[in-house]
Simulated scan of single mutants.
Amino acid sequence: MVDGTLSYWRAGLDSVPEEVWSHPALDVLLLPDNRLTRLPDRIGTLTALHTLDLGHNRLTSVPSSLGDLTGLTRFLYLHDNLLTELPATLGALDRLAYLNVGENRLSALPATLGSMTGLVELRAQHNHLTELPGSVGALASLRELWLRGNRLSALPASVGDLRELRELELRENAFDAVPEPLRGLPSLRRVDLRGNRIGELPDWVGELPALEKLDLRWNDVEVAPGLLAELTGRGCVVLR
């Protein structure tokens, strides 16, 4: 262990090493790029962890005891596994800043997501999501939301409460219109809507005060000349 960190990156592991449990004050545990299929319940005893990386493994589930890691304040990486659901207890991680659950097999995110009020960045790309929980609007600190490669056709109205949201990636979903809940978001700077089914850009997009980049490529979208002139005239890059 070096400076409170244990790293087993690409160590060919099938299970969590016993050494881990002898360091209850561990700050950072890195287990990416292994062959882990399960995570022991006692992971919840490592309450001093602020960073946990379990990415690029073969996990089919994670235990509810993950919610006991209330010291997690920086990163939780669960990307590129075989997860079909997440435990509701994740909502207890209310100080976590970054959560990555991308590249799994999730059809839903837990309703308790909204309790993770410390989240600044949420990545859930390349899953099977058809909707987001309404509680997402409670993530008052959220600045980045990455949802590429899902099956979303709408966003909950509560997304309109994400006053700090700056970057939104909705690429390669099933939207046939720009989601109405984005209307009036004061901090939204970049929106990626590539590869959807959007046919028209609504006038209210011109009212997004902070918009710097709007990517509409790979849609059959019409943009009114006046709206396009308004956006580009103030320096917003519109790609189509």
Rank of each mutant, 00 (worst) to 15 (best):
E18T: 10
S158P: 05
V136Q: 01
L49Y: 03
R163M: 14
L216C: 12
R234L: 11
L214F: 10
R58V: 04
R194W: 03
S107G: 12
L165F: 10
R166G: 14
R42C: 04
A174E: 15
L152I: 10
L93T: 01
L76T: 04
W146E: 14
Y77P: 00
A224R: 13
T5G: 01
E207N: 12
G235T: 10
R143P: 07
G233W: 13
L109D: 03
N173K: 06
V238G: 13
A140E: 12
E18F: 06
A97Y: 02
L132P: 00
L69W: 04
G160Y: 09
R240N: 12
L72T: 09
E164L: 15
D161I: 00
E19Y: 08
N150M: 13
P179K: 00
D14R: 14
L231R: 04
L193Q: 00
P186L: 06
R143D: 02
R143S: 09
G199E: 04
T89C: 01
E180A: 15
D3A: 15
E164A: 15
P17D: 06
V101A: 13
V20A: 12
P181Y: 08
V16I: 13
L52I: 05
L82G: 08
L72C: 04
C236K: 03
L216R: 10
R189Q: 14
W21D: 00
T232F: 14
D41N: 12
L227Q: 04
L30G: 04
P225E: 15
A224S: 15
P186K: 02
L76G: 08
T232N: 15
L78W: 09
P32T: 02
L76V: 09
L26Q: 02
E103G: 11
D14P: 03
G184Q: 11
L13P: 04
H23R: 12
